[in-house]
Computed example of a mutant assay.
Amino acid sequence: MAAGNITLIVEPRGKPIRKLPAEFEISLDASSEELYNAFSAASGHSVHRLRITKGSDRSLVPNSSATIDSTGLRNSSVIHVKDLGPQIAWRTVFIIEYLGPLLIPALFLFPLRPLLYFNFDKIPAPSDTQLLVCALLSLHFLKREFETIFVHRFSSATMPATNIVKNSAHYWILAGFNIAYWVFRPDAKAATGTPNEGLVYAGLAIFVFGELANLNAHYILRGLRRPGTTERGIPSGFGFSLVTCPNYFFEILAWLGIFLVSQLSWSVIFFTFVGGAQMWSWGWKKEKRYRKEFGDKYKKKRAVIFPGLA
């Protein structure tokens, strides 16, 4: 064994991995990324499909530029290598998630309208309000697709491919089928030719503000992470001095705007409530992570989404 090199004892965790070496020699100065690349080449699996943990405490050996020495691995240390199964890129996941609610409203409002509402004696043409709601939904999810492709930087490259159905169900069912079916019904409140104009104009104003402010927050978050890294900085800028996740706050505002324009459709507020509850959970996890990661450098927030509330 060369000076500065160590030999690691390699054991599969879970199902056996083809051609995984029983031992592996590596320099203490090498990066853990090199370890992942070596096992990827040996097994024929993508590095994103592999997870390496220390046998001593089962802590993760990250796939990064960190040196083997810094991970605490030493000569004859045992490492466990797990096959996570088929993976799919997070960017692809989001594109698929948002594609459903991007296309479903227009499909429900036009080509599928006679099939969906066949039990009505007469199916009138969509009202101006229904057309407006369809446009707002399309703009919202077009923005989401734009952000996915050009703005967001992901801390994890992939996720298990089997999760795609579960992750997409929230958007395809609640934001797609649920909202489109009920708001575009011939007897929906939005079907009227004389909508409450106060709700329409207030909803439009809130929607535009929420979408633009949300986009701005995403650009701020993008700037905190250098391309190709998982390092993060402390976010600051419009909204971040008030709550942990102003991007979630502005997202909810935009949906409240759609709720008003829809003439207070229960289906829109139901989706907003379910999504808001999930964002509240994510927000508190992020707040705890900021406190742990940045310590006294980070100004703790009592509210993670709604200023002064939660």
Rank of each mutant, 00 (worst) to 15 (best):
V183T: 10
V183M: 00
S76T: 13
L115K: 07
K15A: 12
I17M: 02
G198L: 15
I173R: 03
V78E: 11
F150M: 07
R18H: 15
F294P: 06
S267F: 00
A41N: 13
H218G: 12
G308R: 00
K143S: 10
Y181H: 13
L8Q: 07
S56T: 04
A205W: 13
I96E: 05
T129W: 13
N119E: 14
G275I: 13
P195W: 02
P307M: 07
Y298L: 00
Y201S: 09
H170C: 01
L142H: 01
S27H: 14
N163T: 12
A22P: 04
T129G: 08
P186I: 09
T129V: 14
F238D: 02
L107A: 12
L60N: 12
W182C: 13
I234A: 10
A191N: 00
Y248F: 13
L136I: 09
P62D: 15
T129Q: 01
A38V: 10
F118C: 08
A106P: 00
V304N: 00
R225V: 13
I269Q: 10
V200E: 00
V183Q: 01
N247C: 05
H152P: 13
A157I: 04
Y181V: 07
S40I: 11
H152Y: 08
Q263C: 11
Y201P: 11
G237N: 11
S281E: 02
Y36P: 08
L28D: 11
P246N: 07
S267N: 02
W280F: 13
L212T: 12
G275V: 08
A217C: 15
I95E: 01
T53M: 05
G85P: 08
V165M: 02
L264Q: 07
P114E: 11
H218Y: 12
G72L: 04
G228T: 09
E231Q: 06
N216T: 14
A217L: 10
G4Y: 08
S46H: 12
T67Y: 04
G308E: 02
D83Y: 07
G276P: 01
R144Q: 09
P62C: 14
N75W: 01
N214R: 13
Q263I: 00
N63P: 03
T192S: 07
L242H: 09
A106Y: 12
L99E: 03
A217K: 11
F270T: 04
E145C: 09
L8N: 01
F120Q: 06
